[in-house]
């Protein structure tokens, strides 16, 4: 399977602050990829490195087989807070899109605006958050990119606008087969629409992969208290919590866990992501057993 994004040891520092460290990724083509993590985890940095707005401090990144650079016709980018020019009308936005992009699809752009019921003579500054996001999405897709990047596109939207935005995005992805990478700090925004997931916490990639494979290989084990390191090879403990008598583990394992002392459950995507986030945030809790 071909990759749209390949990174090796990708690192970005702003002065002394590290925004992204040692990130090695392969993002397959033709997928809707969710980039999830808490605020400040490095999602924006990764996306801006991908579209060429930022240059890496260390490591390499290749997007669609080339070093990313802004001004590429092959990448569409919807930036955080979906910026548009407040004093330009919708029609003027489409006009500048047409002027600035050789591959511009005016029919697609006008069709979307009409479908959304927006007045082309309306100034963008007067649009609601959802409408503004839709306009920014229209600009990004009418340039007909091969890869569409979206930085927290629905974070500021109400549930209805959120749904409408994702409907439009998915319709476009289905029709044109465009690869999509979108970030969010909420798994709920992503779980229906993404089939590939990257979890970013504290500037590092915690886990990435196909959503179904992730769901199939992660289990929640509950049983009598025991040391998680006795689980055996091939089983990675993502998260462990213990009471006096009981241990609850989130485990990544390709083979099913058939130890009868453990009750094994599937996790949903949100629990899975949360397990990786807590693991990164709370190493202290894992050490309860070692102290004894």
């Amino acid at each position: 399977m071909s990759s749209v994004i390949t990174t090796t040891g990708l690192t970005k520092r702003y002065g002394r602050r590290t925004a992204l460290s040692d990130c090695t990724l392969h993002v397959p083509a033709g997928h809707v990829v969710g980039l999830v993590g808490p605020n400040g985890a490095g999602k924006s940095t990764l996306l801006q490195l991908t579209c060429g707005l930022l240059t890496p401090t260390a490591g390499t990144i290749e997007v669609l087989g080339e070093t990313p650079h802004t001004g590429s016709p092959r990448i569409g980018f919807v930036a955080q807070d979906t910026p548009v020019y407040g004093n330009l009308t919708i029609a003027e936005h489409l006009r500048f899109g047409a002027h600035l992009n050789p591959g511009w699809d005016q029919a697609l752009a006008e069709g979307r605006i009409a479908e959304l019921g927006l007045d082309p003579a309306q100034r963008a500054g007067k649009l609601s958050g959802g409408q503004r996001a839709q306009l920014a999405l229209t600009l990004a897709i009418a340039k007909r990119p091969e890869l569409l990047l979206l930085d927290e596109p629905v974070a500021a939207l109400d549930p209805l606008a959120r749904r409408e935005f994702l409907q439009g995005l998915m319709a476009y992805a289905a029709e044109h087969g465009t690869s999509v990478v979108m970030s969010s700090h909420l798994v709920a925004d992503l779980e229906r629409v993404c089939d590939h997931l990257i979890v970013l916490v504290n500037s590092r990639v915690r886990v990435d992969g196909d959503v179904e494979e992730l769901l199939g290989t992660h289990h929640r084990l509950t049983g009598p208290r025991r040391d998680p390191s006795t689980l055996g090879p091939g089983r990675h403990v993502v998260q462990a919590s213990h009471t006096d008598v009981q241990s609850t583990l989130v485990v990544r394992s390709t083979a099913p866990v058939d130890d009868p002392t453990w009750a094994s459950d599937r996790l949903d995507l949100e629990d899975l992501v949360l397990a990786y986030m807590t693991e990164a945030g709370a190493h202290g809790r894992d050490r309860v057993l070692e102290k004894r």
Binding site: Q167, M170, R192
Partner: peptide
């Protein structure tokens, strides 16, 4: 396309 445009779901699904 109709399905994803209606239920906002991944096309691959």
């Amino acid at each position: 396309k109709d399905v994803v445009a209606r239920v906002a779901i991944n096309p691959n699904t």
